[in-house]
């Protein structure tokens, strides 16, 4: 007799929150064995745990290493559950091209944002680090992305973010995309100054921002 669904999802969430990689994988196996819905388990279990870890991060209870280990646990669970997800297009909240701008090779922040976005069901194309502005624009067009997410840790590379936006303007398709920026030296003021559509101070906020930007884009809202 399998345990209640809600109890299993709670365990999944707790395993991520408590940085327990093996428990996350084992609990994910339990989901599969019981025949529960894999997407629901990801959403209400793994992603929920990641969101709770993110909350602790915002409250200065968790730090970057804790989020990384939480992500390891989430990925351990995802690895088990992914093959069991029933494809349902209506669930995919959107497509994101993500990367670290040219001149910077720090990618922890970008990787965390990617994890959160994937947990929210976004399809992501990870361009990696040290990516020229033109490659962001090109990849966004090829991938039919709705969101372009650009990260940097270094003040020296911030100008590249502005360049991505001007390249989209030059291409005449600026309105097809929503551009979000983040990273240690970035601020909401800076994002506004360069004409980005949004700024997120951390990975959890970035996930919420991406959801908002996509619904804006689909709703045709342009402020």
């Amino acid at each position: 007799m399998p345990r209640e669904k809600s109890a299993v999802y709670r365990d999944l969430s707790d395993a991520v929150l408590n940085l327990e990689e093996e428990k996350a994988a084992a609990t994910a196996q339990e989901v599969v064995a019981a025949g529960y819905d894999a997407y629901e388990a990801i959403d209400q279990g793994l992603a929920d745990g990641m969101a709770r870890a993110g909350k602790l991060f915002e409250e200065d209870e968790y730090f970057v290493p804790e989020l990384l280990i939480a992500a390891d646990a989430m990925y351990a669970g995802l690895g088990v559950l992914r093959p069991h997800i029933k494809i349902d297009q209506s669930r995919a909240p959107g497509r994101v091209v993500i990367g670290v701008i040219e001149g910077d090779t720090h990618d922890i922040g970008k990787n965390l944002v990617k994890i959160i976005l994937e947990a929210k069901g976004f399809e992501t194309r990870d361009l990696g680090r040290d990516i020229p502005p033109a490659a962001f624009a090109q990849a966004a067009r090829e991938f039919n992305a709705e969101i372009i997410a650009i990260s940097t840790l270094m003040t020296t590379t911030m100008a590249g973010m502005e360049k991505v936006i001007s390249l989209l303007k030059d291409g005449g398709d600026r309105d097809k995309f929503r551009v979000m920026v983040g990273g240690a030296p970035i601020s909401a003021t800076f994002a506004e100054k360069i004409g980005a559509d949004g700024y997120a101070a951390n990975a959890v906020e970035a996930g919420e921002l991406a959801v908002r930007l996509v619904s804006e884009l689909r709703g045709g809202i342009r402020d």
């Binding site: 940085l19 970057v64 290493p65 990384l68 280990i69 390891d72 720090h106 922890i108 990787n111």
Partner: peptide, 11 residues
Amino acid sequence: GAETISRWMFK
């Protein structure tokens, strides 16, 4: 690498 030292602190 920052990610590896992070993991090592725990594991």
